[in-house]
Simulated scan of single mutants.
Amino acid sequence: MVRPYRFSLEEFLKLPLPERGVELLEGEIYQMAPIGSRHAFVVERWDEVLRKALGERARVRVQGPFVIPPGTYVEPDLLVYRQGDYRERHPTPQDAFLVVEVSDTTLEYDLTKKVPAYAKGGVPEVWVQDLQGSRLLVFRTPEEDHYREQIWVKPGERLAPLAFPEVLLEVPW
């Protein structure tokens, strides 16, 4: 019987892989889709909106490392996380307030692979912006491999992250 090799997080981090373009989800390596212009534009807009609204209350990381022990290394489009010194480690779910994924061609992957991994890790809130469906999918309250609360937000509507209920954001389109 042929079985795929499952990588540990430590093995993955030692592999001679390109700077970007791959993620480790529960021991399996996935090639990330190239970033299109629409996707890049929306990620930049989210970055501007989040940094302006949150100021010094949180850090915002754009397409950077995020580790969910024991076997997941991803690069979410945006990670909103606690202030602190991350020179010696990557942020983990205990540091995270919110993960934002922008999906143009990767909606199925984000919903079936990444969102369950975020839930298993205990990330309190995940937003998946579906560019093709013109909607924001909001996932809150992780429970095992899923989220108990799911909200669909339409273009032009506003919402606040759970960690910052006083910060009302308009979803960039």
Rank of each mutant, 00 (worst) to 15 (best):
98 L>T: 11
9 L>N: 06
50 L>D: 05
33 A>L: 02
30 Y>Q: 01
54 L>W: 08
119 A>N: 09
37 S>F: 14
118 Y>P: 03
55 G>F: 03
33 A>Q: 03
30 Y>R: 03
159 L>A: 13
96 A>T: 03
84 G>D: 10
82 R>M: 12
141 T>M: 14
143 E>V: 02
159 L>C: 07
37 S>M: 15
1 M>E: 10
3 R>H: 12
100 V>W: 11
32 M>K: 09
111 L>I: 02
139 F>P: 10
163 A>V: 01
135 R>E: 05
19 E>V: 07
158 R>K: 15
1 M>F: 04
147 Y>H: 08
45 R>K: 15
94 Q>R: 15
28 E>C: 00
45 R>H: 11
37 S>E: 12
170 E>L: 01
16 P>N: 15
42 V>L: 10
142 P>F: 10
39 H>D: 06
134 S>H: 15
85 D>W: 03
149 E>Y: 01
6 R>C: 00
122 G>W: 08
113 K>P: 00
53 A>P: 04
163 A>C: 05
9 L>A: 07
20 R>I: 00
126 V>N: 09
169 L>N: 08
66 F>N: 03
126 V>T: 05
52 K>V: 08
46 W>I: 01
72 T>D: 11
96 A>K: 06
4 P>G: 03
99 V>D: 11
101 E>H: 06
14 K>E: 14
78 L>E: 12
118 Y>G: 06
148 R>W: 01
33 A>Y: 02
34 P>L: 05
162 L>V: 09
49 V>D: 01
92 T>P: 03
8 S>N: 06
48 E>Y: 12
154 K>C: 01
158 R>A: 14
59 R>T: 02
140 R>W: 07
166 E>Q: 14
159 L>E: 07
161 P>T: 02
3 R>K: 15
154 K>R: 15
48 E>I: 03
103 S>N: 04
79 L>P: 04
82 R>V: 05
91 P>C: 13
148 R>E: 12
128 V>Y: 07
91 P>A: 15
11 E>M: 04
103 S>Y: 11
48 E>G: 10
